[in-house]
Amino acid sequence: MNIENTGSQMRKGVLEFCILSIIKQGEAYPSDIIEKMKAANLSIFEGTLYPLLTRLKNAGLLTYRWVESNSGPPRKYFSLTDEGGAFYDELSKIWCELVNAVNMVTINNNQ
């Protein structure tokens, strides 16, 4: 049992929620998502992000459109579908409950 492994497992659990949350704020290019995650001190590999995005897209939660970039080929910009919005709302509810539950369980150790 090493600490890094456990910690990264914890982070992975909330990855989808975070990504959906970022995309919900507006159409996002994957590297924007990476930047925002990094800014929030939750850096992930792009190699992790792309499969995740594809999976979410295949599940109908995300959609994308091609946007012409001034350098090279067009880029994929992702946005939430209606289903994705509903999914996000559900997730945020669960997250909220989870945070509370964890807080409540751990509150006595934090002093």
Binding site: Q9, K12, I44, F45, E46, G47, T48, P51, L52
Partner: peptide
């Protein structure tokens, strides 16, 4: 390094 090696996001993969 930025994108990550497959073995680095391997664990996450199977877990998810």
């Amino acid at each position: 390094k930025s994108i990550g090696r497959p073995e680095e996001f391997d664990g996450e993969q199977s877990a998810s």
